[in-house]
Design a protein around this nucleic acid. Structure first.
Lengths: 206, 206
DNA sequence: CCTACCGATCGGTAGG
DNA sequence: CCTACCGATCGGTAGG
């Protein structure tokens, strides 16, 4: 709201502090939701990690559920900005190459992987506050990957007999399952397994 | 301990009642652990579903953790008896065919799938009481599936260039990811996707 | 943003 | 197997 950078210092007015505090809370929430899931995470623990009291946290996010949804929104923003910066081309093979790069990135962000592993399992319950979110997220993700395989077919790069829709669902399932193995043993080569899976469906190397 | 069947009726002595009650508790625990995970499940709710008080439950299982481990043991027994009854042969392709049959069975047992989806995600935390159990379980399962692919290679049924160890890890990951999708949308064709995956690695039809 | 509090619920124990 | 209880913790609110 001002051109002077010093105006954003802690002493000044404006909402810069509030915004920073919100992000601090969301980071702590993301970490704890990933560690123990939504149901078992306590507002008091998230607040303590953010350096405030738990009623202080509730000033920024009125309910635990609102905090969860804000956490998911924030992750989507970060992922969206990450996925769009590469320049691998928008054809099917390029999109699939980009997907491997995303898996490589995730294997350096354990917190993100933990968050989705914990919440996607929890959210299979119909009454979970993130149930609709994950339903829609899977629908959209599988559709996007299936479209990448369909585009690869137009390029003549898809192995004959491969159904793009099935290959899309399979690849998303593979990625989720690999995350579990990697979180458990810390050794599983997620990008390698994803790359091999994609290449087994294509007639060209990645 | 007696040859007279009527001696096992509710009024009589012996431990038949205790055994039946234990199984009742384990069934309720399996269901609730699947619905909300281990951490969020309460002994009181499991006890209520079993028709006893929660100190009554603690008479049969001294701690919540002991109940969890007993639940996992019971599931293993049931699965082991189910996996051994088919007669598909013990060669690689036969074992893989049996795996598809197991997935078909699981798609009629939502409770079992829920239990493993919820607990395997929770147990990625190093301090979870089932952490070691799932580490060992994945190690063993992936080894068994990898061995099936290795046997298939000896039969000349494996597609050239396929690494049995990688194919094993991929197939297990695929199964876990498909379970998530199926639990979420109730539509995903788990056996179809698993069968297609296996066939894409083989040179013979299943 | 805080302290102080609410009613509910938790795993486990005492004592029978 | 029960009732009754323990100390701890939960999400959320009151009041400032």
């Amino acid at each position: 709201m001002t051109l002077d950078d010093t105006a954003r210092s802690p002493r000044s007015g404006g909402y810069a502090n509030g915004r920073a505090r919100r992000e601090q809370i969301l980071d702590a929430a993301m970490a704890l939701f990933g560690e123990v899931g939504y149901r078992s995470a306590s507002l008091r623990e998230i607040a303590a990690r953010s350096g405030i009291s738990h009623p202080g946290l509730l000033h920024h996010f009125p309910t635990k559920e609102a905090l969860l949804l804000a956490t998911l929104e924030r992750r989507d923003e970060i992922d969206a900005s990450g996925m769009n910066e590469d320049g691998d081309g928008d054809d099917g093979v390029g999109l699939l190459r980009r997907l491997v790069a995303l898996v490589e990135l995730n294997s350096r962000r354990r917190g993100v992987v933990e968050l989705y592993a914990a919440l996607s399992a929890e959210a299979t319950s119909a009454d979970h506050p993130a149930h609709e979110y994950f339903l829609e997220r899977y629908r959209r993700t599988i559709a996007a990957v299936s479209r990448a395989f369909a585009l690869a077919r137009e390029q003549g790069a898809l192995r004959p007999g491969v159904d793009p829709a099935l290959a899309g669902a399979q690849l998303v399932a593979l990625m989720d399952g690999l995350q579990l193995q990697w979180l458990l043993d810390g050794r599983t080569d997620m990008p390698g397994a994803v790359r091999a899976q994609i290449e087994s469906q294509l007639t060209v190397p990645l």
